[in-house]
């Protein structure tokens, strides 16, 4: 299996390879060859369609974590212009797992904040695989407060396995940093939007995810614990991750049904990594539309609505 390939993508990739061979070979010049290519193309389209129609939650987990899936930095490069990165929490250090800064998307000036997982090995280590430390959450809050002061709408990009569980993170108050963000984000006096672009890992995701609207990429995930973590605690074995992925209801369609998110951003068939340009356009469109809509809403109503949305979350016996 080729590197970066998902098991359920294997037949598709094999067929693609065959088709490429035909196209580049003699067949492309003969009539019968051309007919064969057309047949293969049709076959490929059907295969792609059927494969991605019956994706299991576990398949979706794999797509959400796909090594080629566009990361926050890719979105920064492709969505807008004039990005100016701002560093540091003004207390301890700059956390490379959490990025943020000014950007212009369409004609809209914005503050964007999000986790970056890193691409190659060195970058991944530098970014701590997108697991932010307390100073990352404090930097995010500092930038969001800055945006509030200068009346810039805020868009956060969520892509993290979770907040970093380490000694230093505990010493510097990971809990406090996240908790404070939850409280403060609830009353930021500017429109706020969060987009889950890959993994929404528990409190680490929520720490930048309390917003007027939450949009989710079709094949991204969002849950209270990773399927592996849940499997090892509740199912007594991490090997049961596939079952727990289903039980956790972590896909975008599940979360829309539960009214936790406000919308799903459609991905190209097979996931964003198959056609990044497609997803950049869709995300750009969503940001422009949602921010335009939120800006039209009066501020005091916006804040009331934000709190009410969260107050209504939960299902219990009355």
């Amino acid at each position: 299996m080729a590197f970066n390939e998902l098991a359920f993508e294997k037949p598709i990739n094999e067929l693609k390879e065959k088709l490429n061979e035909l196209k580049n070979g003699k067949a492309a010049t003969t009539t019968s060859g051309k007919a064969k290519i057309a047949r293969y193309e049709k076959k490929l389209n059907i295969l792609i369609e059927t494969t991605y129609q019956k994706l299991t939650p576990w398949n979706i987990v794999k797509i959400a974590r796909h090594p080629k899936r566009p990361h926050f930095k890719d979105y920064i490069k492709n969505l807008g212009k004039d990005f100016i990165e701002l560093h540091g929490d003004r207390n301890f250090r700059d956390d490379p797992a959490m990025l943020g800064g000014f950007i212009t998307i369409g004609t809209q000036k914005l503050m964007i904040v999000g986790q970056e997982k890193g691409r190659d090995t060195d970058d991944k280590i530098y970014r701590n695989f997108g697991m932010a430390s307390p100073e990352g959450y404090r930097k995010a809050l500092r930038l969001m407060k800055l945006a509030e002061k200068f009346k810039l709408p805020i868009v956060t990009f969520i892509d993290t396995p979770g907040a970093y569980p380490g000694i230093g993170a505990e010493e510097r108050g990971q809990s406090e940093a996240i908790a404070r963000n939850l409280r403060e984000m609830m009353s930021l006096k500017v429109p706020t939007l969060s987009i889950i672009i890959g993994e929404g890992g528990s409190g680490g995701a929520l720490g930048i995810g309390v917003t007027d609207e939450i949009q989710m990429l079709q094949y991204s995930i969002y849950s209270v614990i990773s399927p592996e973590g849940c499997a090892s605690i509740l199912f007594r074995d991490a090997k049961n991750a596939e079952i727990s992925a289903k039980a956790l209801k972590l896909t975008s369609s599940d979360l829309l049904k539960l009214k936790v998110i406000d919308g799903i951003i459609e991905e190209p068939s097979g996931g964003a990594h198959n056609n990044p340009q497609y997803i950049y356009e869709n995300v750009t469109g969503t940001i422009i539309n949602v921010i335009k809509r939120l800006k039209k809403t009066g501020l005091s109503y916006l804040l009331k609505k934000r709190l009410k949305k969260y107050k209504n979350m939960g299902i219990y016996e009355k």
């Binding site: 908790a179 929520l206 969002y222 849950s223 956790l248 972590l250 936790v260 969260y310 979350m313 939960g314």
Partner: peptide
Amino acid sequence: SILSLMQM
């Protein structure tokens, strides 16, 4: 799952 996360 997500509903308990939202309680935070």
